[in-house]
């Protein structure tokens, strides 16, 4: 497999994640919609750290900012920081069993959500709903799903 096609596959999954991000989930589901883009980004960082770097994370974050109409740099900053952690820890993370990975993902999502809330609060006082943290839990629960799905995508024609 040449590297170009592997890159295409990564891009495609990120695009799908972005679509999932903005799909109008009915009612309650919309408030617990996890940050799919970040989950996919974490997977690819841990799986193929030589292909995904800080710059990619930053670009994806910037595009997510535009897509969701946030202040510029908000997601870019969060994604950059988290991908940086993942790049440092990727060797250890690969050895982790799935539950332990889940714990790490949980803290990543929590950190991202806290950062977003903090940035929002700086701009204008925001109120904190209890359900604001729900996407973090749901995202953690979704991690095994994403892990298996993306693993299949990666190994289907050996992207690496």
């Amino acid at each position: 497999m040449n590297s170009y096609s592997g890159f295409g596959r990564i891009t495609l999954t990120i695009i799908i994640a972005m679509c999932l991000r903005i799909v109008p989930w009915p009612g309650f589901l919309s408030s617990i919609n996890p940050d799919w883009v970040l989950l996919v980004l974490i997977y690819w960082t841990v799986a193929v750290p030589e292909r995904i770097g800080i710059f990619h994370a930053w670009t994806v974050g910037l595009l997510t900012d535009v897509l969701t109409g946030r202040v510029f740099g908000q997601y870019a900053l969060a994604y950059t920081l988290i991908v940086y952690f993942c790049l440092i820890l990727h060797k250890r993370l690969r050895q982790f069993p799935l539950p332990q990975q889940g714990l790490f993902i949980f803290f990543c999502l929590l950190f991202s959500q806290m950062l977003l809330f903090w940035l929002k609060n700086i701009q204008h006082p925001a109120q904190l709903h209890t359900s604001f943290w729900l996407p973090v839990f749901i995202g953690t629960l979704c991690w095994p799903l994403i892990y298996t799905a993306l693993r299949r995508v990666r190994l289907s024609r050996r992207t690496k």
Binding site: I54, W58, V66, F72, G73, L77, T80, L119
Partner: peptide
């Protein structure tokens, strides 16, 4: 680097409308 860039973007966007063109392009 990227962190600095993000923070710079955040501050610029918060202060002014100069990034509207960039946003339109993206």
């Amino acid at each position: 680097m990227a962190i600095v860039a993000s923070v710079a973007l955040l501050i610029t966007e918060h202060r002014s409308h100069r990034l509207d063109a960039l946003r339109a392009t993206l």
